[in-house]
């Protein structure tokens, strides 16, 4: 059984003060108050979506809340903090729910929510933008596989694919290198780079087609909830089978600001990976393997340039 989520300690946040400051005489006192309240708000909710009744030092939470929050005639200090505690979790779970339809399908809603609670309990947001909320989810799953077992390998693959979509959506687009510019430098010296919005993935499951199928199924469900005659159709398509193991190579990217994923052969993937790693053009082509024919490589480069993937290394 997984260890309880409430025992997970948040990383990056300093320990809360033993007691709330009685008055705020300095910025340091303000920090103490804010640290205490943050620790309380980001604590995982109880099973009934409430604020945990016992504080980390064993005192009743009511006592801790009363130390610094004023009650009114309708709400106790505990209930007032509980409002914020619930809003914190509901908001963040909602966002992660929307950002990870594939992972949700792999685990099922209940298990997905447990994973997210455990993830955010350990890795609360360290960025001003909610866009980065899932940035450490892959790392967390690798560190604590008990939340995703027995589907950890698939879950890890899906998370990488879904995060790649976030990157493809809004990362920078650098000026594209022209064929003339490439021709100007000898291949033994020329180093290129890939557009920052491209993610190259070598995966053990065909998660690209899986995630697309899940999204189509979800769209059908939404449509069905608005049209009675579609309900049966949606029920039939309720389950998208988890994919079987299969090695795939895929680039997640965008074109004209629309998201795409493109399957690659292994040699093409290796060449792109070598370019991304900063190798010279000559070495990158060699990384594709001996069996690759020059005309094949020429064709790939022509396509990558048409897609605007190649830029000059700084």
């Amino acid at each position: 059984m997984p260890r309880s989520i409430s025992s997970i300690r948040a990383t990056g946040l300093k320990a809360p003060p033993k007691h709330a400051p009685r008055r705020l005489a300095s910025t340091n006192d303000v920090v103490k108050l804010q640290r205490l309240m943050t620790h309380i708000l980001i604590r995982p909710l109880t099973k009934s979506d409430g604020l945990q009744p016992v504080w980390i030092d064993g005192r009743p939470m009511t006592e801790v809340a009363e130390e610094f929050i004023k009650p009114n005639d309708r709400l106790s200090a505990f209930e007032r903090l509980q409002l914020y505690n619930r809003m914190y979790w509901f908001r963040l779970i909602d966002i992660m729910h929307d950002d990870n339809p594939g992972l949700r399908a792999v685990l099922g809603d209940k298990k997905f929510t447990r994973l997210i609670e455990a993830y955010l309990a350990k890795y609360p947001s360290r960025s001003f933008t909610l866009r980065n909320l899932c940035s450490r989810l892959g790392q967390f799953i690798r560190e604590e596989s008990r939340w995703t077992a027995p589907h950890t390998a698939l879950a890890t693959n899906v998370v990488r694919f879904e995060w790649a979509q976030t990157v493809a959506f809004d990362e920078a687009q650098l000026p594209v290198l022209s064929a003339a510019e490439i021709a100007r430098t000898p291949p033994v010296r020329l180093r290129l780079r890939l557009q920052p919005y491209i993610t190259l993935l070598a995966l053990d499951y065909p998660v690209d087609t899986y995630v697309v199928a899940v999204k189509q199924r979800n769209a059908l469900r939404t449509e069905a909830s608005n049209a009675v005659d579609k309900v049966r159709e949606a029920k039939q398509s309720k389950y998208v089978a988890r994919p079987r193991r299969e090695r795939i190579y895929v680039a997640v990217h965008r074109l004209d600001n629309w998201l795409y994923y493109k399957r690659l052969g292994r040699p093409a993937f290796l060449i792109l990976q070598a370019i991304a790693a900063g190798q010279t053009l000559d070495d990158a082509v060699t990384a594709g393997g001996r069996r690759v024919k020059p005309e094949q490589v020429g064709g790939w480069f022509a396509m990558w340039m048409e897609l605007g993937w190649l830029c000059r290394k700084k």
Partner: peptide, 25 residues
Amino acid sequence: CWGSVDGTYTHDLLPMPYTFASAKR
């Protein structure tokens, strides 16, 4: 409002303590 401490973000708009020290800061 406030909403972060030690670089950890709550993504909420949390009420201020209405004190002179926090107004100054």
